[in-house]
Structure formats: C-alpha cells, structure tokens
C-alpha cells in the first residue's frame, strides 16, 4: 500500500514538473482549451439571450375578446375570473367600452373628421378582454375554451383569426430556434473538442521518443501515462479557471449593453447565481478534454 502512495506521489510530482518545464507547450494547449470552453459556455449565454428575446416577443402578442355591447358587469367578472383560473392564461386585462372610447379619442384627438363622426355615432366600440397566454401555442386552447355555449351570449367575437398567423409563426420560430440552437451547439462543441484533442495529440507527438525510452528502460504503462494524465488535468483546471475569469470580465462590460437591447436578459446576474455550477461544468469539460485527450493520444506510443 505504501508503495502505491509512493508511486502516486512520484507521478503527481513528475506531472507537475513536466507542466512547469513545458511552459510554452502548456500555454499553447491551454489557450486552445480556453477557446473551446469559452465557446461552449458562450453558447449557454446565446441561448439565454434568445430565450429572453422570445419571451419578450411573446409578451407582445395577445388576443382580444370582444364582448357584447350590452354585457353586464356581473358577466364580465365571471368570464374574467374563469379565464384567470386557466393554467394557460398569464394575464387578463379588461377595457370597458367607455375606457376604449376614451383612449380612442385621446389617440385621434387631432383628427377632426373622426371626432365628428364619433359624436354622431355615440360609442361604437365594444368592451374588450385582452388575454395573454403563458406560451404562444396555448391561444388555440383559450379560444376553444371561450367557444363553450355558456359564453355565447357574452362574447361577440375574438380576433384570434387575425392574430393566428402571427402566433403560429412565432411558435414555429421558437421551436426552430431552440432546435437549431441545440444542433449548432453540439456541432460547435464537437469542433472545439476535436481542435483541443488534436492540439494535445501534437503535444504528445513531441514526447513519443520519451515515451518509448521509458518503455525500454522498463517503466510500466501506468507509470508513463500517469504524469501525462496529471499534466492534462492541470491544463484542464487552469483552462477552466481562466475561462471563468475571462467570462466574468466580458460579461461585466457586455451585460448592461445586451440588457438594453434585450430587456430582462441579466447575464451578469445569471453568471453570479450560477457561478459554482458553471465553474464545475467548465472544470469538468477541461479535465475531460485534457485528461482523456492525453490518455488517448499517448496510447499508440506505449506499444513498444
């Protein structure tokens, strides 16, 4: 057992020494790894911005439920509370005919012709319920819900038919963006992983003679691999910590700007909340790239 710890300690020490003595090689490998990990986490943030953007767009879409001219206050409050009770509904906003007229007048007060005709007509506007769903795809269900018999005498018409194409487009856009984003993320992560792996392979190619010498003087495979594995893991940890630092600096300056473009996307806040899981993910990716990369790369030089 003690020989195990002795050997383990020697492998650690040797790996650390190799790291210190191959500083330039280490720097090159680590920078490629930083780029790869930065890219991978960058995608999380792009995803985050995309989601916020879509939520913002979806919030702008609603349907207007026009009620009959002579609807009673009681009926309005019933249909309103029924709607609020639905899971799909996020918000219901009631505008009475008078309120609608007031805002119409305010909007068109400079248009003399409109004002005159309004005076002759009285109030042609209908009371309206503006319904906002949780997700764009849920409007269909809400419209069906309002199609029930008991609402026939209250509801005059729903402008869903006019809004429907817009809503459909938005739903399919959301789906496409998230699916496409996933595919692109996977491809980019693969590319970054391959580039890192190849960098490590080239680094290992430099050491092929050393590896065969160690074999020829009688070192066991694990005694040869160990230090390279340790070195790879050191690369991974350093790359992860550097990436996190780099990310913090870029978010510190970019987050306010992005937030003003896409309101509600507080990337820096998200970074702070998820700091440890992010660091964990990055360190994991780094160790996986560095450690597994060097193990696979060294394999073929161990066959002497």
């Amino acid at each position: 057992m003690s020989i195990f710890y002795l050997t383990f300690g020697r492998i650690l020490k040797s790996g650390w020494n190799n790291f210190l003595r191959n500083r330039w090689l280490a720097l090159a490998t680590i920078s490629v790894m930083v780029l790869a990990i930065f890219f991978m986490t960058g995608l999380i943030f792009v995803n985050l911005i995309g989601k916020t953007l879509l939520v913002n767009l979806q919030n702008k879409v609603d349907i207007s439920v026009y009620l009959k001219q002579d609807v009673s206050e009681q009926d309005v409050s019933i249909i309103r509370s029924d709607l609020t009770f639905l899971n799909e509904v996020k918000d219901v906003n009631y505008i009475s005919a008078d309120e609608a007229l007031a805002s119409f007048k305010a909007k068109h007060q400079d248009n003399a012709v409109l004002m005159e005709s309004l005076q002759e007509l009285g109030n042609p506007l209908l009371p309206v319920l503006n319904v906002e769903a949780q997700e764009a795809s849920q409007y269909e269900a809400i419209v069906n819900f309002l199609g029930q018999d008991k609402y026939q005498k209250i509801v005059d018409k729903i402008n869903y038919q006019q809004t429907k194409p817009l809503i459909d487009r938005l739903s399919s856009f959301t789906n496409k963006v998230s699916r496409g984003g996933l595919i692109i993320s996977i491809i980019l992560a693969l590319v970054a992983g391959l580039v890192t792996f190849n960098t490590i392979r080239l680094a290992m190619y430099n050491f092929r003679h050393e590896v065969s010498v160690m074999r020829l003087v009688g070192a066991s495979n694990w005694y040869i691999r160990g230090p390279f594995l340790v070195e790879g893991i050191i690369y991974g940890v350093i790359a992860a910590v550097s990436t996190t630092t780099l990310l913090f600096i870029s978010l510190y300056f970019l987050s306010p700007k992005i937030n003003s473009l896409v309101p509600g996307s507080d990337l820096l806040g998200w970074f702070k909340v998820n700091f440890f899981s992010l660091l964990f993910f990055q360190t994991g990716a780094g160790i996986l790239l560095g450690g597994v990369g060097s193990l696979v790369a060294i394999r073929k030089y161990l066959k002497v």
């Binding site: 020989i3 002795l6 050997t7 020697r10 160690m214 003087v217 009688g218 070192a219 066991s220 005694y223």
Partner: peptide, 8 residues
C-alpha cells in the same frame, strides 16, 4: 533516479 522510482 527514474529507473529506481519506476520500480518503487
């Protein structure tokens, strides 16, 4: 030392 270290 490597030749001795590797055999523990």
């Amino acid at each position: 030392a490597f030749a001795m270290e590797m055999v523990g």
